[in-house]
Design a protein around this nucleic acid. Structure first.
Lengths: 355, 355
DNA sequence: ATGAAAGCGCTAACAG
DNA sequence: CTGTTAGCGCTTTCAT
């Protein structure tokens, strides 16, 4: 206990506790301590334990950049914000980042965030980050069908995980929400309420979710015994403006639908507006379901039914996955979990004019 | 030029260019190169130049964590996301982060993002980040009147900059938007249109902006020759719900206002709703101006006039300031710039019922 | 004005 | 199993 006092005073001193301090306190060498801490197999169980205990007691924490100089790894996850992406503008981001940072912190990692405004700049950003070893791996939001980031990182043999499906499985690890199920459920929900003519506005076709969500919609229609009307289906709308345009063209069809399902929340707001301009009242003349996790607050105005997605949980999951990858631990190659749930805010009831 | 070829092949080799490579290429020692690059005064102008040129040519970039081991600085800026904050939910964040990362990158810095869900966790997060030297300094969004972060960082003598005013100037460096001017302008604008009874809904009183914005409002009223009616003024509303409540209570006053100025955008949406429930039409019975940078897209529905703030530019500015601080270069202690501009979307026209 | 040498905190050969 | 030794890339005394 005399030693204990010395130990504590050393760590309370203000100066960081180094591996040498721990070694000294145990009359061992740095290298032994290092190996014990990193779980090398050539250290006896007993010393392994002694070392770990002492390290704990002295609140020793290896300095990540001191390790990095040898190992090349900084214990930091990279995330590149794509400003062109429509997500950038949405509540999505804060939650997702919080999730990432939470997941990272839980394992002693940090999150390094960079940004890029176009694709050129994007890969340049990755390269800089890699060259300077600012990140051990990357989280890639919004998986694309033909993803330039994936190509780059694969070639450079850098660990990464995707938020969104990846069809070419090679060396890929992804996590995704089952958006296709959400789309199907929306259709079934609407059909159950008596809707027969249901429109669909899909999101950006460059993203891998678009194909899936369309299939989900089509599945739902098939299951409900309804026929697909190409006239009522649109692709590639991600902003409110695009949603308005798509919605308008669908509503102006010869035989317009009584409900519209949107693969992206922002577009639903556009539909809402298009309907408004045509004198249609949501929940009365037209029902709208939006997917993608519009949150209460900001958008509570329109009585929009929506699938709410837990982006924070997604972030936590992805951070965890990436860390496993970095450490070379086995990861589940494919991952699908439904973190979406439906919130009916009353716009999907059977429309009055069809009673 | 024979040497040049060797040099280039070395750097093209794939392995990073180290300081030794540069030294060797010039037949100098590492230490000389290091001092030349860091602008030490004991290196001759000529070699200084030679070294810098060669470093440039070889695309040499010092490894930040290798330097960090000696200097303690990682060339990284810290940013702690506060989830409880109402900003977390808004487009604000993406833009601001992009600005920070842009400003950081421009000077060879990176951005380290962490998160905290409550105040306890908040200072813990700062401490961890500091202990592990994950950040050389911090950007603190949403300056508070009595800011726990400031206390902590001041005591620890760590560089930081605030987004928002700080009244205790000691060791503080901040950057802010002139929200007070925006509030004053809103009042003058409304008064110019003939409004005489103008309500005010202020934001969170824990933030330093609240005092300023109220003063701005009061200034405007005074300049317009209007008297303040405490009955039409509310404090401490930041969410849409709180805005709705405040708006409702103002609209239910014995002699309600014809216009309401909101210090926070979200609350304006609440007012919009409160007005709606009372059968009031915005732009007809009531005018609303919201400050804080609601962006087009999401909120275009309500014809709300608003001050749009350039959060990205703010981020760039703050990153620059912080870097100066970290480097110990002189910084302007106080900084006020107006990056806000007014966007009239038609809700501030003179109301019909007062024609 | 430059070089030689030491060392930052840590990992990783190689011995024993 | 553990200690010895070297070295990662860089900075920083201390000589010269």
């Amino acid at each position: 206990m005399a030693k204990s006092a010395a130990v504590l005073s050393a760590s309370a001193k203000g100066a960081r506790v180094t591996i040498s301090d721990v070694a000294e306190a145990l009359s061992l060498t740095k290298s032994t301590v290092s190996r014990a801490l990193n779980g090398y197999p050539d250290i006896s169980q007993s010393t392994q334990l002694r070392v770990k205990r002492m390290a704990e007691r002295m609140a020793y924490q290896p300095l990540s950049h001191a390790q990095a100089i040898k190992t090349g790894r900084t214990r930091s996850l990279g995330f590149v914000l794509q400003l062109a992406d429509h997500d950038a503008q949405r509540p999505f981001l804060a939650e997702f980042l919080a999730g990432l940072s939470e997941g990272a912190t839980a394992q002693g990692y940090t999150l390094t965030v960079a940004s890029a405004d176009n694709e050129e700049h994007l890969i340049e950003t990755f390269q800089t980050l890699l060259r300077d070893r600012k990140a051990d791996g990357f989280i890639l939001p919004r998986a694309m069908v033909d993803d330039p980031r994936v190509k780059l990182l694969r070639k450079a043999d850098v660990p990464f995980v995707l938020f969104g499906r990846q069809f070419d499985p090679e060396g890929c690890c992804w996590f995704d929400i089952r958006g296709e199920d959400a789309m199907r459920d929306a259709v079934l929900h609407l059909a159950g309420l008596g809707h027969r003519r249901i429109g669909f506005i899909n999101g950006g076709t460059i993203y891998s979710y678009a194909k899936l969500r369309r299939e989900g919609f089509e599945d739902g229609m098939a299951q409900a015994g309804l026929t697909l009307e190409p006239e009522l289906m649109r692709e590639n709308a991600v902003t409110m403006e695009e949603g308005e345009r798509a919605g308008a063209s669908i509503l102006d069809a010869s035989d317009p639908p009584t409900a519209i399902v949107c693969a992206v929340d922002q577009t639903a707001l556009g539909v809402y507006r298009a309907a408004h301009l045509r004198g249609l009242v949501i929940g009365h003349d037209l029902s709208v379901v939006g997917y993608d996790g519009i949150k209460e607050g900001a958008h509570a105005q329109p009585p929009l039914s929506t699938f709410v997605v837990d982006n924070r949980a997604s972030g936590v999951a992805l951070a965890g996955l990436l860390i496993r990858r970095i450490r070379g631990e086995p990861t589940v190659q494919l991952r699908k979990t439904s973190l979406a749930h439906f919130v009916n805010r009353g716009s999907t009831g059977q429309n009055t004019r069809h009673e």
